[in-house]
């Protein structure tokens, strides 16, 4: 359990948020040309990093907006938060 600084609402309890998994997985531009392996990679395979990970979060019980977070999954420390569409901070 931790506090999350929503870029739109400010600091709120993590209970208000929904985790949306790994960030920056781009939807294939030409899905009809994808092989089964490429589909599996897009749909199912995840980095699942122990350490600094880029992920999406949603302020589900607040403004309901999506944003990105850089978080260390080994100690739940939040390194950075940035809006959708913004460039991820360099690590």
């Amino acid at each position: 359990m931790f506090l999350i600084n929503c870029p739109y609402c400010g600091e709120r309890d993590q209970q208000e948020f929904k985790a949306g998994g790994e960030a920056h997985i781009e939807r294939p531009k030409q899905p009809t040309e994808l092989s089964d392996d490429e589909w599996a990679e897009y749909l199912f395979m995840r980095k699942n990093i122990k350490g600094v990970q880029f992920e999406r979060w949603n302020h589900a019980h607040g403004c309901r907006k999506w944003f990105n977070m850089v978080r260390d999954t080994s100690n739940d420390e939040i390194k950075a938060i940035y809006k959708m569409g913004e460039k991820p901070p360099s690590q």
Binding site: M1, Q14, Q15, K18, A19, G21, N48, I49, K50, Q53, E55, W57, R71, T73, S74, N75, D76
Partner: peptide, 10 residues
């Protein structure tokens, strides 16, 4: 619902 290796939980 989030990835974590902390062996804690909310």
């Amino acid at each position: 619902d989030y990835v974590s290796y902390t062996q804690k939980g909310s």
